[in-house]
Design a protein around this nucleic acid. Structure first.
Lengths: 350, 350
DNA sequence: TTGTATGCGTTATCAT
DNA sequence: ATGATAACGCATACAA
């Protein structure tokens, strides 16, 4: 027994055909007579050859079938958010028909030798979000000339973007609250910058994370002076913590809360319950995302429904387009306002 | 302007050195004089060469730095579970020092042409769980001679396994309930088979998912006849649905519930609240996993704490060992019982 | 329909 | 410390 794996040359020899013929049997790019095909396949299975070596094929074809997805924080953190999970599903689905899969890469890791866009055999890169640490990956992709797509972040005009009408959508929700008579409104925001900094937001706070800034602008378009409380990210527990702050002083609490995500809204609602408040009788709460929140039932959140899977799919299609040499389109996806049962009229004066 | 990307040969020519010398400047495998190194680097930057082409390097080295992770269902579904998220983080962390990253692959997808273990340039494969659909990936990995690790599933004695003492741990929790005097106990299980089938479990039900079967055995070691209600998977909402069933009849409800995951337990607790029951006064609930459940506070779950990150890390180390030609170890990780505030003595007779 | 020849971009070996 | 050369395994252009 040899311990070297069989190559297509071995198969060809065994089948008494040329390497190119054997190759064609596997790739199907050229017609092959049935007889030879059978011979080649028989030889292959005799030698335990299961198909071309992907590594050699990638070099030859100039394509590895791998799309690098650069995520900022830990997977645990990223995938806590259902929006991201669905987005990744859409992305995977859209590149799969091209034989491509997703390689997870992290921007910042203290591990020596960790794989990056510079060292991994990727055909294209997808960046999620676009705060400072991602900048590095952006440069890497550019210097290697990799097709690049950015999701909810601005990387310059040459990179296709997959955007959401965050500001318009959030304004719609705010307007809904105003229509219900609310004037005393608080905003609970997503993370505002790469570093974790939660707490009351100064009115001139610099917000480097686009989605947070845009949604805040939408809310402020209607409630210009609404106080905003920043969280460390989209989770129920962060929303709970924020809600506790908002409802701490019974004499001085908002009648409505605009949360920048459904998870945050779920936490705010929980905090309201804790404080003995009924939603929406005592306080109205709006979310953002419109995804099913595990554990939120029986509430039906008033929220903005975004299409996370479509977002991923759009990114995937942009990648696919670039891989085929077509010109990818930037996409602006829109959110739909979905009234639920967590908003209502302003309660009678306390 | 040429539109072909520069290769290391171009760099070598520009720097007036041999290709091998230029290569060594980037790999650092052999000493190079400072002067030539500088010349090469200068030439590289002049030509916009940012390092060896990973595709060519993979062929030459026989290593792509990619570990295929085969997940069964959608990413959304998989990553709903915090245990899986943390596990993946551990896995990524453990292979990163070897320059390796994780490529997500799905077992069953109806997409034509989707990447698989047979077509993707992976150095090794990690299978998560091991029900029927994974079998296929297992064969693929075997036929390509890929190093293979299975997490919480049995793939035969030649494959290193990363296991948890599910049965022992669950027995400990059950014993805890028995010690508190409970005899009327119900079990809420994880998914029992690849297909989704929830509902009361016949006593002779065939359970193909190992973790579910093992935990059930542990519970049955103490409460041999406890009724078991199967769910479609680990989520708060599934637990909520199960809890509603359990607590539907006030005259005939269990005094304790053994949930096979913390998420399920969280849902059961929510159902108890809904039914007007107080935990642990009216009903005790145990979980399994010991991870922070977003949205469960302020409860402190009585649960079994498993080390999900270690589990991933162990898998990653086994992979790394195999890549280096060392003999990987199977690992049996143990869970620790952590009493919380969701279990208590049997309530006075109703 | 089949075969021949070549190159994809590297890196390891060996000699200098 | 540096250079010449071969090989990694495959897929294609082109000839037959």
């Amino acid at each position: 027994m040899t311990n070297r794996r069989a190559t297509i040359a071995d198969v060809a020899r065994e089948a008494a055909v040329s390497p190119s013929t054997a190759s064609v049997v596997f790739s199907g790019k050229t017609p092959v007579s049935d007889a030879t095909r059978r011979r080649v396949l028989a030889a292959a299975s005799a030698l335990g050859y299961v198909g071309p070596d992907p590594r050699a094929a990638s070099l030859r074809l100039g394509r590895s079938g791998i799309v690098g997805v650069v995520v900022g924080a830990s997977l645990n953190h990223l995938f806590l958010d259902p929006v991201q999970r669905l987005m990744m599903d859409g992305l995977a689905e859209a590149v799969a028909p091209f034989g491509a899969g997703l390689l997870l890469l992290r921007t910042h890791t203290d591990v020596e030798n960790a794989p990056t866009l510079l060292t991994a055999p990727v055909d294209a890169a997808v960046l999620i979000g676009c705060d400072a640490p991602l900048r590095e990956s952006l440069d890497a992709a550019r210097s290697r000339g990799l097709p690049l797509v950015v999701i909810e972040g601005d990387a310059g005009s040459d990179v296709p973007q997959i955007l959401l009408d965050n500001r318009d959508a959030q304004r719609t929700a705010a307007q809904h609250l105003r229509d219900l008579g609310h004037t005393d409104v608080a905003i609970v925001t997503l993370r505002t910058r790469a570093e974790i900094t939660s707490g009351w937001l100064p009115s001139d706070a610099e917000i480097t994370i686009d989605v947070t800034r845009e949604r805040l602008e939408g809310a402020r378009d209607v409630f210009a002076d609404a106080p905003a409380l920043a969280t460390a990210g989209s989770s129920i527990d962060e929303g709970l913590a924020a809600g506790r702050v908002l409802f701490a002083d019974p004499a001085n609490r908002p009648t409505a809360v605009i949360a920048q995500s459904d998870l945050l809204a779920a936490g705010v609602i929980r905090a309201a319950e804790e404080a003995g408040l009924t939603v929406p009788l005592d306080v109205s709460v709006t979310g953002f995302d419109g995804i099913p929140v595990d554990g939120l039932s029986p509430y039906e959140l008033t929220t903005l429904v975004q299409p996370p899977t479509d977002k991923g799919r759009a990114a995937g299609e942009a990648v696919a387009a670039m891989l085929e040499g077509r010109v990818p389109a930037s996409v602006l996806l829109t959110c739909a306002f979905r009234p639920g049962r967590t908003t209502g009229p302003v309660p009678a004066r306390r």
